[in-house]
Design a protein around this nucleic acid. Structure first.
Lengths: 334, 334
DNA sequence: TTGTATGCGTTATCAG
DNA sequence: CTGATAACGCATACAA
């Protein structure tokens, strides 16, 4: 489709100089006489010439100045914040970002990663969907894992203090007098989910409470489903019914909020992940907050450190979480 | 950084065949004997060879299978929905997307576009920030404008029925008995803003109401600022003070909501753009809704139509809007 | 200050 | 069925 684009050869002919001279002008190299440069620039303007960066990066050892980013879904605010951050850091270094959403599908993830490698991205930022990435281990392209640690290979990673955040949430509910605290989270195959559930359990144990298995639901992914599950929890007999709820991520929190509408004040709620407008809801929502933008920044910085030649053993950056009380988590038990 | 990657030459040597044979195997071309193919595939696996798509697209007339996308800010849900849509359509065609956010900065936009053209993207989807794009007119790369129509060049565009949507909003407020209706919108240099303000004025005029200039604020961009402006409006003397408010986009709506917190029920509100959780707010928010995901799909389809050889004159797709009553827009005047 | 020859990794052409 | 050779657009080494 790039038919008939002018090349430096055309520019050279038009300006009556050699290829190399044009090349020099384009790349601001020294040693080119003022009038010659002027002629070349004129030719460039007249022809509408634009350097072909694909050809340029073909030369040995040259980088494509491109980062690959594979996430779950750009439309999720958590991931779009990450995308924004990676993009910004990349831009400062003159890099562009090719991003792809893999919808938690390991096969699609692998396809995306391979397409990116074929395009010779200089490095990869990856929110892993697959259970293992041994197939990436032999690759020489630097990879930084985001949100979930690498399995099956060694690599840098930026993750959250998931267990700590979950503990904060549950301890907060305990401090407000709750004992029957339910948990709605992703399947525990996901490390983030299992760590958050572990934090939930740890907080309860530390308080001498044995978690009721009927209140721990880790079999759900989409908000519609968690809405249904919270409705189920609300419908339990009074002796079993939870008085408080911990939701394992922003989507589950949204689902829970929908289920709770109408049932107002019947259930205390603390959710993992902050979200816009949480403070403007009918019951402002208490959350475990972290800085998703910063996750992206840290990941991008690790990437560039590697590209700059850092040979240290893989690093792991763990970002903190913090509890933001807004109302929904401070509701006392009935 | 792509040092020492195996090339088809290495594969060829290892398999004891020629370059072309390897190429044939890689591209599933016919006319290669079974055992030969097997030897080549073995060599590919052993060496961890991956085709270099940069070199591939260097060949004359070959496409890079890449789309460029320039938006204002990925972190804004409106744009991330668009990004998701463009990406999905692109994937179906085996294309990837290089996206960049330009923060409404015309210079940055131009830099991004030129970087994308240097990378020989096959086409461009552009939410224009600059006032004119005459500098793009001579380019042979297809461009589709999104959300705002092209100025200074001819090109396809996908836009919203901005005036119609604004009319819907204001007519709704009028129908509920309001006469002093304020408007908070982006500066009118932005076509989207000026069209929405025009719709606002048209609806008032049709009702025989002369808009009070003190109630029309089109000098703002970020939510913090619109929060302040709505606070000003609320502080006006009772004879002037608006009883209803139309906000020109999702960010202004959020700002207004913050200003209104506490002042509950003092001001009816209809906002342009729907947003998640609008229905779960303290006062569920009435909005003018449109399908931002579909905008992205339509734009991507126009792009591929052009890449498939469509030579028709530039098309303009106008997507409809719809009013979603949720409560905040049905508050009667005091 | 300017130019020539060569290579980057792939595909296309045309010959064996 | 297979292979040698020439592009693709640019940059690098080395002359002139």
């Amino acid at each position: 489709m790039t038919a008939g684009r002018p090349t430096i050869r055309h520019v050279a002919e038009r300006a009556g100089v050699s290829l190399k001279t044009v090349s020099r002008v384009i790349n601001d190299e020294p040693n080119v006489a003022e009038p010659t440069a002027a002629r070349v620039n004129a030719a460039i303007a007249e022809l509408g010439f634009r350097r072909n960066d694909l050809a340029r990066s073909l030369r040995h050892g040259r980088s494509s100045a491109t980062l690959g980013l594979v996430i779950e879904d750009v439309a999720n605010p958590f991931y779009s914040a990450i995308t924004q951050a990676v993009e910004n850091v990349a831009r400062e270094r003159g890099f562009m970002v090719i991003a792809g959403s893999c919808s938690e599908d390991p096969e699609l993830e692998r396809d995306l990663v391979q397409a990116l490698l074929r395009r010779r991205v200089d490095a990869l930022v990856l929110v892993p969907a697959a259970a293992s990435h041994d197939w990436l281990a032999a690759e020489q392209t630097p990879v930084v894992f985001l949100d979930r640690p690498p399995v099956g290979m060694e690599a840098d990673a930026v993750v959250l203090d998931n267990a700590g955040g979950a503990r904060l949430a549950v301890e907060h509910l305990l401090a407000h007098g709750h004992e029957r605290i339910a948990c709605v989270a992703d399947p525990e195959e996901l490390v983030t989910a299992s760590e958050r559930v572990a934090g939930y359990r740890a907080a309860l144990s530390a308080a001498g409470i044995e978690p009721d298995p009927r209140l721990v639901r880790t079999d759900v992914r989409d908000p519609e489903h968690s809405q249904a599950i919270v409705a189920e929890l609300l419908a339990l007999p009074e002796t079993i019914r939870p008085t408080a709820l911990f939701t394992g991520n922003n989507r589950h929190t949204v689902g829970a909020l929908r289920a709770l509408r109408g049932h107002a004040r019947e259930l205390a709620l603390v959710g993992f992940d902050d979200f816009e407008l949480a403070d403007l809801l009918a019951t402002p929502t208490t959350v475990v907050r972290h800085d998703s933008h910063r996750m992206g920044v840290e990941a991008a910085q690790l990437v560039f450190a590697r590209l700059d030649g850092d040979e240290d053993p893989p690093r792991r950056v763990v970002l903190p979480t913090e509890l933001v009380p807004r109302g929904s988590g401070e509701v006392p038990p009935p």
